[in-house]
Write a protein that binds this DNA or RNA. Structure first.
Length: 435
RNA sequence: GCCCUGGUGGUGUAGCUCGGCCUAUCAUACAGGACUGUCACUCCUGUGACUCGGGUUCAAAUCCCGGCCAGGGCGCCA
């Protein structure tokens, strides 16, 4: 593009700029050739703008280039803004020079202008083209602002952002399947969660930490709400209990809704979402109530069972929006959950749900060494495999609590998407490892 | 991993029940042509496809079996 630099994004040009010379850059969204008149709709990250090329008002060279353009060619256009009622936006650009920066081959693997729909599989195979569609891009602009808002809230509440290892030695934590990898002469695994590390940071005295990073789960699930690589928003806070963790989670979620509603009107409009800013506190259900509700909806559920998919759906019919489930049976929660001192069957764990979807789970953690050993044994795990983790509980571990919020699932809720793959640039599932 | 449904030009589809004038429909895209206000421009001409392997049959896009892949559901997901 030589010495050319973009002077404006398409949405920065206004009818009042009539007569001003500008440079815009982008992709040819569509082109309509009417003999001696050519219309080019140029698309950049922020929107679209019409370039009009009348043979009698431009040089022969500009007209010929204009006529030669194809869909998705990358161009730079230097020209004058012209206010004109006949233009779609009330203004358009008459070029003095068009530079073709790169041609696009044809036919395209899918249609970014959305005239012909494509299956999600085709779209993901050609994700970079799919992402040129304004609706798809809007979702990822929202995701960026969601992450900004989450960080802002947590920084404001005194958390520091940390990074913990994703290459881990142990496959003995129990629970989910891990991805084994080769680590020099040893076997290692991809981390399933930063849980143990963020707890160790409580022992380190960092007091309040959060991490936004990938988690890996080698489960062969095949659903619209599971991925094998996901982004987790994890936080952990010292000298706090489950109620404090719930309050923090609530304000993270609520502030994000407020932030998006205030700063992302355009993107929400593009994807057709009218955000419901649900008031806090969100409703709380105790596990006992959940069992009753689910059974009253005709779905069998025994006390002590985790929620089946049918149970989640029944709950989703009964509840609307965000709500917490608290007072869980200890047997179905992880070993690091603190038992409830008032009722030994229960523990200090909670889940945050949205309709029928679990988007976060957390708990006050077990900070007492002997209890923790009991918990590990109760889950059928071997305390000897938790060496460096357990050490942290011997020399002054403060009481603490925390949670993990699924960033991709949170985006499903925000963007009203039914498939989690829509919310991830390059999703990883049972079948998909590329692109 | 299990169950259900499906796989037709670049993309999205019709046809499959009941095998045969299918030399396979339509839209869009693409190539060429006409057109000075399009905005899903319009009009004319043209190019382009039955997932793979096996089977049944005179004959398979169509029926049967298997593979691969996809969509949906379930399970799994401390």
């Amino acid at each position: 593009m030589g010495n050319w630099r973009r002077t404006h994004f398409s949405d920065e040009i206004k009818a009042e700029m009539d007569g001003k010379e500008i440079i815009v850059t982008g992709w040819v969204n569509s082109i309509r050739k009417l003999g001696k008149l050519v219309f080019v709709i140029l698309r950049d990250r922020e929107g679209m703008i019409q370039i009009v090329i009348p043979k009698q008002k431009v040089s022969e060279e500009v007209f010929d280039i204009g006529k030669s353009l194809g869909r998705e060619d990358v161009i730079g256009v230097k020209g004058k803004v012209v206010a004109n009622e006949k233009a779609p936006a009330g203004y358009e650009i008459i070029p003095t020079e068009i530079r073709v920066l790169n041609r696009a081959e044809s036919p395209l693997p899918l249609d970014p202008s959305e005239k012909v729909p494509a299956d999600i599989d085709t779209r993901l195979d050609n994700r970079f083209l799919d992402l040129r569609r304004p609706k798809i891009q809007a979702l990822f602009k929202l995701r960026s602002e969601m992450l900004r808002s989450v960080r802002n809230t947590l920084y404001d509440e005194g958390f520091i952002e940390v990074n913990t290892p994703k290459l881990v030695a142990s496959a003995t934590e129990g629970g989910t399947e891990l991805f084994p990898i080769s680590y020099f002469e040893r076997e290692a695994f991809l981390g399933q969660s930063p849980q143990l590390y963020k707890q160790m940071l409580m022992a380190a005295g960092l007091d309040r930490v959060f991490e936004i990073g990938p988690i890996f789960r080698a489960e062969e699930h095949n659903t619209r709400r599971h991925l094998n690589e996901a982004i987790s928003i994890d936080c952990e806070m010292s000298f706090s209990d489950d109620g404090d963790a719930i309050a923090t989670l609530e304000s993270v979620v609520h502030n994000t809704l407020l932030h998006l509603n205030e700063h992302c009107k355009k993107e929400l409009d593009v994807i057709g979402v009218d955000l419901n800013i649900q008031e806090i506190p969100f409703p709380r259900l105790e596990y006992d109530e959940v069992v009753d509700i689910v059974n009253s909806k005709g779905v069998e559920m025994e006390w002590g069972e985790d929620l089946s998919r049918a149970a989640e759906k029944a709950l989703g019919e009964y509840m609307d929006g965000f709500y917490f489930i608290t007072h869980w049976p200890i047997e179905i929660r992880p070993f690091y959950t603190l038992p409830n001192e008032e009722d030994p069957r229960l523990c200090k764990a909670f889940d945050l749900m949205y309709n029928d979807l679990e988007i976060s789970s957390g708990a006050q953690r077990n900070h007492i060494y002997d209890l923790l050993i009991e918990g590990i044994k109760r889950m059928g795990l071997n305390p000897e495999n938790f060496g460096s983790y357990l050490e942290a509980f011997k020399y002054g571990m403060p009481p603490h609590a925390g949670w993990g919020l699924g960033a991709d699932r949170f985006m499903m809720v925000i963007g009203a998407q039914e498939n989690i793959r829509e919310c991830v640039l390059f999703p990883r599932d049972r079948q998909r490892l590329t692109p």
